Amino acid sequence: MSQKWLRREGLEWVDKEIITHEQYEKILQLYPEQHRMISFLPIFASILVGLSLLTFVASNWDGMSQITRFVILLITMLGFYSAGFTLYRKGHPWVGQGLLGLGVVTFGASMILIGQMFHLIAYDARVFAIWALAGLGMLYLYRRNFFYFITAVILFTGQVYAMVSFGEASWLILVLTLFGLGIYAWSTLHSLVGWLLSFLLGIQIVFLIFSNDIAWSWLSIIPIGFYAVGLLLEKRSVAGGFLFWSHTFGVIFASVMVFAQSDVRDHTDFLANPIAYMILFLGLLILAVYKSGWEKGKLVPVVLFLPMFYLPFGDLLYLLILFVFSLLLIYYGDQEEHRWKSKMGVILFMYSCFLGYIQLAWDFLDKSLFFLLGGIMLFVIHWLLRRRDRWMTKGGE
């Protein structure tokens, strides 16, 4: 239990007369503060020990027979697993999960090395899918985030390997990510798990679109799709990741369109079928608006998701969208007293100014004048933001 959380919540209990101050002090004594870095030390220690063993084996690999290699790999893997199971069961969860994690890593390394020993050729990323199943087994057996992160790294590595080696994304790895990691993320209270899940899904969908000759403009469905999913899951901690990455992917797509719209608008590989696109887009838009409860603050991101690439002068429209979105973030952040949202709006406004400056002035301005105007613009923005902060501090007087 977090000592910081207990202190904060405990004071509220005292104020509400749920407990007395003396009881509050006694509760704090029952849960002494623990340094989380100290808890991570056994994991780091077990990783270093495991790496030393693997390094020793690798340095002497060429001088061993195949049977010796196979036996060493088997003993190493079983040793990590058995030691991890034993220590975990005896009340040493941090050391235990560190050794079990090394067991998962050794399992995958063993498959790859055995494949090399017997000259087995892989034609897809199934070896990473099997490897990920070992990580998922540990994840659902012990319900520890450590195994979630290990499995996420394996799945992401496998998808990158599939793209680089075979030029196509693996549907199997996407399914394992969606259901294997998704079911765990659905039930956990840790928001970081949701952020990682949504990032992995977003990147893999991008890979699938590029590797299957699908029109690139379908990429713009990812932000509004993630936003709708985030609103659907709003009461769960996993929702935060989908909401965050919907904004991030939306800003990235709009930024690319500011510079690339004129080049790709009429390209057959870019434009999606307008009828199919609009049916899906409007469906997601209606879902997002419905789940937002018509709250203006929740409707703001919809501006960022509008498909302006079908229109002429789409590059300028996307630049305008970035400006409007950033100003709305600042406004509603102030209205809701949400400082993080206001700060992100300010950062995005400066970023939009930078994009517009590059897009509109780079080609025709003398470069010295270009940088001079850029510096003056930043001074003006700084002055305006300082005035805004002083106004907010004085309560708008």
Rank of each mutant, 00 (worst) to 15 (best):
S352N: 02
V193I: 11
F281L: 03
Q3H: 15
V14G: 03
K291D: 02
F309G: 01
L181T: 01
L73I: 09
Q261Y: 14
L306S: 06
A45Y: 10
L41K: 07
L78A: 14
S368E: 11
K90A: 14
T188Y: 01
S191R: 05
F40P: 02
V160F: 10
I347V: 15
K90E: 09
M392S: 10
P32R: 05
A132E: 00
S342C: 04
G314A: 11
G250N: 01
K296P: 03
M111T: 12
V303C: 01
F249T: 03
T55P: 02
L319G: 06
A83K: 08
L233W: 13
L284T: 06
Y310K: 04
N212E: 13
S211D: 09
L100F: 13
G395D: 06
H267P: 00
L328M: 12
G202S: 08
Q66T: 05
F244Q: 02
A361T: 10
L306P: 08
L54R: 13
F149Y: 12
I275V: 13
F85A: 03
I347H: 11
G50V: 00
Q29P: 04
S198E: 00
F259P: 00
L287C: 00
G96Y: 07
V258R: 09
L304S: 00
I252W: 01
I214T: 06
W216L: 10
L48C: 10
L208D: 03
R386F: 15
H92I: 07
V71A: 13
R388H: 12
K341L: 15
W195T: 09
I275G: 07
D213A: 12
T393D: 09
G79P: 05
I381F: 13
Y140N: 04
T68D: 03
K341Q: 14
F379A: 12
V206I: 12
I154M: 02
S292L: 08
D334P: 03
G135Y: 02
S237A: 15
I47N: 00
A276C: 11
A185C: 09
L178G: 13
G396L: 08
F40R: 10
I347K: 09
A254F: 04
L385G: 07
Y148C: 07
R265T: 08
L87E: 00
W61P: 04
H382F: 14
S342K: 13
Q34D: 11
R265I: 05
M77I: 11
W294D: 07
I38K: 15
T68L: 02
V258K: 07
E25W: 09
S237N: 12
I67K: 15
H92R: 12
G333D: 03
I330G: 01
F226R: 05
V104F: 01
F44Y: 09
L181D: 01
A288T: 02
W391K: 10
N145T: 07
T86E: 14
G345H: 14
G356L: 05
M278C: 04
F323A: 01
V324A: 09
I112Y: 12
V324C: 06
K16E: 14
S220T: 10
L176V: 03
L280A: 15
W186R: 04
I275C: 07
I321C: 08
G396D: 08
F349G: 02
M257L: 11
Q261A: 13
L319F: 06
L73W: 02
I154D: 02
S217A: 12
I252Q: 00
L99H: 02
T248M: 14
L280N: 06
V153N: 15
G225Y: 07
Q261C: 07
